[in-house]
């Protein structure tokens, strides 16, 4: 028992160091104590409570109560302490209109930044060699029935926050299992797509922040038809690449006389510098020779 207490206190200490280092408002907690069920990076309040970003106060309350019933130390024992702390923090922020707005802004910006920086790399990993075809779940259509996760648990995972399935590892299970899981989908939302398309599709299916007009129209959205969106997005990407290419070439050609002069000056200065260094070196050798002679 005393041992248990000791471990708890150490974790507390650990957390505090961690937080002092982080200096952030988000409480970081050591989740190993929460039974490893929660990923350490899961500090997104919406994910933590398992609600969608546009959920209302009542949905948040319901989710909070449901999770409290699972993790509250009265029920889960001392292990639930850290998790409940996070739940309380998340609840407090999301239930207060102004705090939630700030929080949305902070994570919204993060999302937007990621959004414009489309990486071109697919989210799902590959097991074995790359193949021409890849699996993709249309999360708009997915009803969250978990059939695919059940049949091929190494390939598919559930996103509990959004209540839909997603491909984690391409060909994570053997072909037969994957076939069964594709067949088993009641709404046929698992598609075979070209490998080249995969990155765009997986990027677009993630909910993106919607542009708000004052207090209206904010929130999160994803394209209704992800395949159409992918086509137009690819087109945009190509155009963007072309213009970027053009622009870089253009800048190289356009050099004002002032810039040319500056560049010439800089080159001269560099040369001078090199020369002076050489001079100094000669001087040093010379003086040291003198000293040794004395």
């Amino acid at each position: 028992m005393d041992l248990g207490f000791f471990v708890v206190s150490l974790t507390l200490l650990f957390n505090d160091f961690e937080r002092w280092r982080q200096r952030s408002t988000v409480i970081r907690c050591d989740n190993r104590r929460a039974g490893g069920k929660v990923r350490a990076e899961k500090n997104n309040y919406y994910e933590l409570l398992g609600v969608s970003v546009d959920s209302n106060a009542r949905e948040i309350k319901d989710a909070y109560r449901k999770l409290q019933k699972k993790y509250h130390p009265d029920i889960a024992g001392q292990e639930g302490h850290e998790h409940t702390l996070m739940l309380n923090e998340a609840y407090k922020v999301l239930m207060k209109e102004d705090m939630r707005r700030h929080y949305d802004a902070s994570i919204g910006q993060m999302r937007v930044r990621n959004g414009t920086n489309y990486s071109g790399v697919a989210y799902s990993a590959w097991k074995g060699p790359l193949r021409p075809q890849a699996l993709f779940v249309d999360e708009n259509a997915c009803i969250g029935c978990r059939q695919c996760v059940h049949h091929a648990s190494n390939t598919f995972v559930m996103d509990e926050a959004l209540a839909c399935a997603r491909v984690k590892v391409q060909y994570g299970d053997d072909e037969q299992k994957i076939e069964v899981s594709v067949e088993s989908c009641p709404v046929n939302c698992i598609h075979w797509v070209d490998r080249e398309e995969l990155a765009v599709l997986e990027f677009l299916i993630q909910p993106q922040p919607k542009e708000a007009y004052g207090v209206f129209g904010g929130g999160w959205e994803r394209p209704a038809n992800v395949f159409m969106a992918a086509k137009s997005f690819s087109k945009q990407l190509k155009q963007q690449a072309a213009t970027e290419h053009y622009q870089t070439r253009a800048t190289r050609e356009e050099e004002t006389p002032a810039q040319a002069e500056a560049r010439a000056n800089a080159i001269r200065k560099l040369k001078m510098d090199r020369f002076s260094r050489f001079q100094n070196w000669v001087k040093e050798i010379f003086s040291s020779n003198m000293l040794s002679r004395d």
Partner: peptide, 8 residues
């Protein structure tokens, strides 16, 4: 303040 809690 809702318990359990940790504040600094």
């Amino acid at each position: 303040t809702t318990m359990p809690t940790r504040k600094e």
